[in-house]
């Protein structure tokens, strides 16, 4: 408890006295598969996260509505992920979510199962001092992901995923101030494979396709983060704008379809804290993600929490 208090004092100092420069070198950081912090060489980070995403209102195309045959659509997601620092600049990550969906009203059955396994390589291209106050670094990421179970993407919004293999290229610029304040800007582009349905024809985007294969449009994502990484604390706030580059809208009173133009602007607030007395071996994570505006997606709020175990080799 004493130590805890001391830690919180340090946080308070970091918050109110941004020039407490000493702490910067020891600052905690997220070190995840999408942020601007490198994983230390030969360090293994294993994370278990659980999140609950819920929406009652959704966008049917651009029309905002509720649906009493769905009620509240809840998606519970448990993600196991691991990251390993191969060198000071390169880290590899793997992640696998287990997803379960449920509608609070109506007769549709929820679905559950392991979803898509993703592998990410995160490479720091450069790190250079920027003014006398901080440093800039640049990262590129390559991610490949594939469904590992034969779930159907054909019962949205109850399906646990979209069923496509994906390849993502991403670039991020990271500015780190001496005080622990940081800011990121990132762009990403995702290519998606076709998806196979269990039926021989489907109608979307104004036409009937006589095939069980669905072409999936690409997805672009733009994000910006501001945050504080000080002492045992890391607190990033991210705005994410993801846009599907094609696809049709959900028609009036229709179900969503896998290749719909799903767009969302979201705000993601996270808090990460190294557990005191563990020598940074255990970190607690909590987050909240709120959809602000969307198209063919739910107006969802997601709460998540979990922990990361850190070990050097």
């Amino acid at each position: 408890m004493m130590v805890m208090t001391a830690e919180w004092t340090r946080i308070a100092r970091a918050l109110v006295a941004p020039l407490a420069a000493l702490m910067v070198t020891t600052a905690a950081a997220a070190q995840s598969a999408d942020d601007g912090f490198p994983v230390e060489r030969r360090q293994l980070r294993v994370t278990l996260d659980h999140g609950v995403d819920a929406w009652r209102t959704y966008w049917e195309g651009t029309r905002r509505r509720d649906n009493e045959n769905i009620g509240t659509l809840r998606t519970r997601q448990t993600v196991v992920s691991a990251g390993f620092g191969v060198t000071r600049s390169l880290a590899l990550f793997a992640a696998l979510p287990y997803v379960a969906t449920n509608a609070s009203q109506g007769v549709l059955a929820g679905q559950q199962g392991a979803q898509d396994l993703s592998l990410t390589a995160k490479l720091r291209l450069l790190e250079t001092p920027f003014t006398r106050r901080g440093a800039i670094s640049a990262f590129v990421y390559g991610t490949g992901s594939t469904p590992i179970t034969d779930y159907t993407p054909d019962l949205l919004p109850l399906s646990i995923g979209l069923g496509a293999r994906r390849a993502t290229a991403r670039a991020l610029l990271h500015y780190q101030d001496r005080t622990g304040l940081f800011a990121d800007a990132a762009i990403a582009h995702t290519w998606r494979s076709t998806v196979t349905l269990d039926r021989p024809a489907y109608y979307t985007n104004g036409r009937l396709t006589l095939s069980n294969e669905v072409a999936m449009p690409n997805v672009a994502e733009y994000s910006a983060t501001v945050g504080l990484a000080a002492g045992p604390l890391c607190l990033p706030i991210t705005f994410i704008d993801s846009r599907t580059l094609g696809g049709g809208d959900i028609r009036r009173q229709d179900m969503p379809f896998v290749s719909n133009r799903m767009n969302a602007q979201r705000l993601h607030v996270q808090v990460m804290l190294d557990l005191p007395k563990t020598g940074k071996a255990v970190r607690l994570n909590a987050g909240m993600m709120q959809v602000l505006h969307g198209r063919n997606v739910g107006l969802s709020t997601m709460w998540s929490g979990g922990f990361t175990l850190v070990r050097g080799f």
């Binding site: 291209l125 490949g144 290519w191």
Partner: peptide, 30 residues
């Protein structure tokens, strides 16, 4: 304080990129 990728790093990246690209290459529908 400049990080330089080693050739091993590059090879790893190229391999991962190739896997990802192959995974997503089947993209058109009749």
């Amino acid at each position: 304080m400049r990080a330089r990728p080693t050739s091993r790093v590059l090879r790893t990246l190229i391999a991962l990129g190739t896997i990802a690209a192959l995974g997503a290459c089947d993209r058109t529908v009749q």
